[in-house]
Every structure is written in structure tokens, then in C-alpha cells.
């Protein structure tokens, strides 16, 4: 589903990704963990080219993401993204946030877009917040709307960039709950996260990144109970 080959990303002289490769299968939930500054978010943002890779190859759903001729907007329709800081559109209500992209990008008729949006609001448990503006919602509610907004494009893949890092502890659970449901439904998901509990419970595979490389990968059990690399062990000992 997602194939990454020898991905490099430099910011000036700083090489943030130093040759990253991986293969994410359909319906797989992959959690990327690692210390801050290790390149996790940059890796994720390269997948839909919010960051332009310096070199390397990315293929999502048989579409070449990297390359001059790629229509990146075409790719992004199929790749939903959820941000750490939600990035809801503050001048639009919850339901308008969700239906905007289907209307403008997919050219979905208004009635249908509205139906999709209301279904999704229901799915994330926020039917009663349909007409609320982002600043009237709590962080957890905003992030759930943001997930619904990404889902409205019916993406083939969902990317989550530390979706719970900006949330108060007591609302982290409601967002993880929505993500768990998605995973159960078979959505292909790549999640950059510090929520080890989520990675352990929901992840099919865990990738440990450090200093711009995937140092170790394996099932959650392998990584959390029986890490092989010193750096993985050192990282896990600090956070578990």
C-alpha cells in the first residue's frame, strides 16, 4: 500500500531523514515511535509531500508520490491527514469543515456532502456539535472533527501526526477511541505517536525511529517486551 525507498530529507545542512525505507501493507496500523527530533513527523509529512523529500521514492496505492509529473492533489485526495494541532478552519462550523473538501475537490453534490458529513459527525460522536465553531469545541472534540474532516474524502490511507500530543490527558481517550474504531474497520493507518498504550493495543507493527533512520521494527510485543537495539531499549526505558 505504502512503499518508501531510501527517503532522504535535508533542511539546509541538517539531514533529518537519512535513507528511510519501509513497506506498509493494506489495512495495517503502523505506529512510528521515537525521541523528539528523530524525524518521525518529517517522515509522515513527506508521505503526502507537505514536506518535499530531498531524494528517494514514495509509492502509495500504486501511485508514484514523488516525481515531477505527479499531480500531488490527486494523491492527497486518497491520503487523509490529522495534525497535532487539529488545524480546523476557524471560520467554518464543524459540519462545514467536514463537507468543504468533498464539495470543492470531489465535486460531490451538496446534499450528498451534507449527508456524508453528518454521518461522520455521528461516527465521531459529535452530532450535537454540528453547527459549533472550532473555538466552541474542546481540544478532543476539535480533533475528532478533524478526523471526520479527513475521512470525508474517503481516503485509502490515514496519516496521524501526534494526534493526541496537544490534548489534555482526560480527553486523549476519546480521540484514541475513534482511531481504534477506524483501525477495526480496516483503515490503513500510519500513526506517529507517544501513546505507547495505543501502539501496543492497536498497532500491528511498531517502527522505532532515531536520528533519521528506522532503527528497529517489529510487532508491539517484540518492540515493547524484547527490544534488540540499545537505542530502542534506552528510549523505552525512559518513557515506559
Amino acid at each position: 500500500m505504502i512503499i518508501v525507498k531510501d527517503l532522504h530529507k535535508k533542511f539546509g545542512n541538517l539531514e533529518v531523514l537519512r535513507g528511510v525505507s519501509c513497506h506498509i501493507k493494506e489495512q495495517e496500523v503502523v505506529c512510528v515511535i521515537g525521541p523528539s527530533g528523530s524525524g518521525k513527523s518529517t517522515f509522515l509529512r513527506c508521505l503526502n509531500r507537505l514536506e518535499e523529500p530531498t531524494s528517494g521514492e514514495i509509492i502509495i496505492d500504486n501511485i508514484q508520490v514523488t516525481g515531477e509529473k505527479t499531480d500531488i492533489n490527486q494523491v492527497r485526495r486518497e491520503v487523509g491527514m490529522v495534525f497535532q494541532r487539529f488545524n480546523l478552519f476557524p471560520h467554518l462550523s464543524a459540519v462545514q469543515n467536514i463537507m468543504l473538501a468533498p464539495l470543492k475537490v470531489r465535486k460531490t453534490p451538496k446534499k450528498e456532502a451534507l449527508e456524508i458529513s453528518e454521518e461522520l459527525l455521528d461516527k465521531v460522536g459529535l452530532s450535537d456539535k454540528r453547527d459549533a465553531y472550532p473555538d466552541q469545541l474542546s481540544g478532543g472534540q476539535q480533533q475528532r472533527v478533524a478526523i471526520a474532516r479527513a475521512l470525508a474524502m474517503k481516503p485509502r490511507v490515514m496519516l496521524f501526526d501526534e494526534p493526541t500530543s496537544a490534548l489534555d490527558p482526560e480527553v486523549v481517550g476519546e480521540v484514541l477511541g475513534v482511531m481504534k474504531t477506524l483501525a477495526k474497520e480496516g483503515m490503513t493507518m500510519t500513526v506517529v505517536t507517544h501513546e505507547m498504550g495505543f501502539a501496543r493495543e492497536v498497532g500491528d507493527r511498531v517502527l522505532f525511529m532515531d536520528e533519521g533512520l528506522f532503527v528497529e521494527e517489529g510487532s508491539p510485543a517484540e518492540i515493547f517486551n524484547n527490544a534488540q537495539h540499545e537505542r530502542t531499549k534506552a528510549f523505552l526505558s525512559k518513557i515506559l
Partner: peptide, 30 residues
């Protein structure tokens, strides 16, 4: 306007022009 607004709009597949028109400009004009 926060950079995340443009990123969110682009990540949904909107073009630069669509993102400007529907997301950035309404907030910037205000």
C-alpha cells in the same frame, strides 16, 4: 494566518488557489 491552515487545506487535496480562496483569504480579510 497559521501555516497549519494551508497545510490542512492542501492535505485534503485542495489546490493552492482553492485553499487561498476558501480558507486563507476569508480569515486574512477579517
Amino acid at each position: 494566518i497559521d501555516r497549519g491552515q494551508m497545510e490542512a487545506a492542501r492535505s485534503l487535496g485542495m489546490t493552492w488557489g482553492q485553499s487561498m480562496r476558501h480558507i486563507i483569504l476569508p480569515q486574512a480579510v477579517k
